[in-house]
Amino acid sequence: MLSRVAERIYWLARYIERAENTARLVNTYHFLLLDMPRGTKVGWHILPYIAGSSELFNECYQRQDERNTVKYLLADSINPASIVNSITMARENARTSRDELPGYAWEQINELYIYTRDNVSTALARRGRFSFLTETILRCQQLTGLLAGTMSHDLRYDFIRIGRNIERADMTTRVIDIGAMSLKEEDEARAHDVHVWTSMLHALNAYQMYRKDVQLGVHCEDVVGYLLQNNYFPRSVTHCIDQIEESIAILPKYKDPLAQLRATRRRVDKIKPATLTAESLHKEVDQIQIGISALHGQICSTWFE
């Protein structure tokens, strides 16, 4: 299998997952902020920060208000991770590796591209936002299902799985980070904790599964523990890492990426959520993100270069 093909397939999966995750995050945040009292410090400005691009955002926009943030995250061509850009890039990767994918996958991606391109402007105002984001999420999930159900689970599919799960793990850590930041800024108003963490669960589609599993109500340490360490929830960091491990282990030359992956996994295992402060939680999450990014680097240098 050509390195170029592997790389394109990997990025295709990452971009689709990224678009879906961003859509869900914005959707959840939108509803969270509607519940917050006026004057609260939890605000839209956190989202570009979390996406790792607050500097770029601040360069382009003077006001960190709702409209600008949403535009930046959904539609902006300047933001490489905006939904529209992610889907455009996913389509470009699919187009140039079309012969490796099931025929319907290409059509599906193409339709998704046309849908987001033509409808994203409706999501900038509050009224049209929900339906645009929900539709985008559904279409992304449809594509993920289509690939899982119609493509041979051979080496090609391994790169899809690796891409999808690395993006998921990354997003989960970012969502936990939003929670941590909200705690930090809101120490006078811990009463909102439960809203914030509930939203974070929603942002990862985890609320219902969490309630079934934990049954204790929504508390910071339980949510963090669940999102980091649960073995069964498909977006928990541990689960994503295990999925990547399964795929990596059957590829050639897996030694270095596997070592990096296991180091990150050990780091996640060691975290004791009950003992964390807002400060130390943020630091831990940061370290996991560094581990994930190092894993991406290993994947690139091992198989793509």
Partner: peptide, 24 residues
């Protein structure tokens, strides 16, 4: 046969043409 683009191929110091695959 493999379908390659220019960027997939490289000439090594031994003078032969190689394609870049995930195996090397």
């Amino acid at each position: 046969a493999e379908l390659v683009e220019g960027i997939d191929l490289v000439i090594e110091p031994d003078g032969y043409v190689y394609m870049k695959t995930i195996k090397g």
